[in-house]
Amino acid sequence: MIEFKKVKKSYIEGNKALRGISMQIEDGEFCFLVGPSGSGKSTIIKLITGELKPTSGSVHVNGYSLERIRKREIPYLRRTVGVVFQDFRLIDNMTVYENVAFAMRVVGARTQEIRDRVPYVLDLVGLETKSRRHPGELSGGEQQRLAIARALVNNPSTIIADEPTGNLDPARSMEIMTLLQEINNLGTTMLVVTHEQNLVEHFSNRVITIEDGLITSDRMDGHYVYEDQ
């Protein structure tokens, strides 16, 4: 569960990126986060992953209190939250398989667990036949699938995606969003930042709209409120 209570965040004195955000995302929910550029969406994500601390207010994520989390607890918080970015962030000199296995190995998984789990998630994202390729030999959509496989592999309860389709054409975007929806159907909480109105409306999930550091709309009907220009 993700819970924000009156969260404010300023990067620099006086300039507020978040001006009092309160929201609650339940386990198993699928929630879009939309809003104009610079409204504070990425800031919210960085607060959830412990990359930033709130200036005031409280942030609770999967049992951790982020406003007072200890530095050495942060890795354990992050194991409960898989992250996907617009720019994929893959390791180019590793194969598809290794990119996913790497994420397991660095949190101390056993070789046997890795052997069992990696093919399973590659199958889930539809990359089972490409496990020996390198990221450079994949299309953008496939690279994002790989990033999703990596985010999934340690079995996090939550996945957070910051504009996961920002680099993809509409057909690829639809595929990725469908994949995230399928993963959500298997029980993973999903928070997806996006600018793509047609996708938001297609999936009719919960939509939180944020403008200038404040929540201006929180609807359950997939309604995209503001006009992107």
Binding site: K71, R72, P75, R79, R89, V106, V107, A151
Partner: peptide, 17 residues
């Protein structure tokens, strides 16, 4: 540093990194 950033992202401890 990219690899290290990914390790941090997926929850590797500082000691492990």
């Amino acid at each position: 540093k990219d690899e290290i950033a990914i390790m941090k992202m997926v929850g590797a401890t500082n000691g492990f990194i």
